[in-house]
Amino acid sequence: MTAAPMITMTGVNKWFGRFHVLKDIDLAVAAGERIVICGPSGSGKSTLIRCINRLEEHDEGRIVIDGIELDEDTRNIAAIRREVGMVFQQFNLFPHLTVLENCVLAQRRARGTPRKEAEARAMHYLERVRIPEQAGKYPARLSGGQQQRVAIARSLCMEPKVMLFDEPTSALDPEMIKEVLDVMIDLAGTGMTMIVVTHEMGFARQVADRMVFMDQGRIVEAASPADFFAAPKSDRASLFLSRILTH
């Protein structure tokens, strides 16, 4: 990996009030790299990836995405948010808009794409997530798995360079997890840069270039999946793995 990294975080620190939630985070993600972040609940995984599209502000350190530094400048934030897509645990679809309108809205508003073109692209990505027949429905009419796939399509419509996933399958019934993971595996095959917070270790093994293990606001370990699963270096990581792999 010689090209300039897609994402560079150096010395990032963040506090919620007096609570030190991110501690000296250093992380570089190459273009096309797929990272899976895991770690116990409350370890700061969500906060970390939410700093990348500025849903949370970091207090110290630098975050550079595709050559643009995240700072107070609103134009930078807008530019970065257009490059970075995010999929949430609770889907966060717009309930008052149909599936198609969910996918069209930001294309029209943030990119100024003409309606025809925006709708064509929306249908293209709805087909990619295998759900084009639901385009006219409202989100509440869909199952959780379908909603999450729409959320992925909605993000992809902005043609981002990076996709962030925050526990995309944690809110799903077991029988729907696979349909969402399959879509994400497909996406990984297209060379998308992905950062995925998940406890789906089968997915991690199959897709991840690198595993990042977090605990108490720190990146404790970063290793290839083969090394990480075979022999985690830290006690905390092996304890964590033994807990989630045995249930």
Binding site: R54, M86, F88, N92, A110
Partner: peptide
């Protein structure tokens, strides 16, 4: 609040 975050993550402005 998550609705605002969804909008922000798509690059919409506060007014939009």
């Amino acid at each position: 609040r998550s609705q605002i975050e969804a909008g922000e993550s798509l690059g919409l402005t506060r007014f939009q």
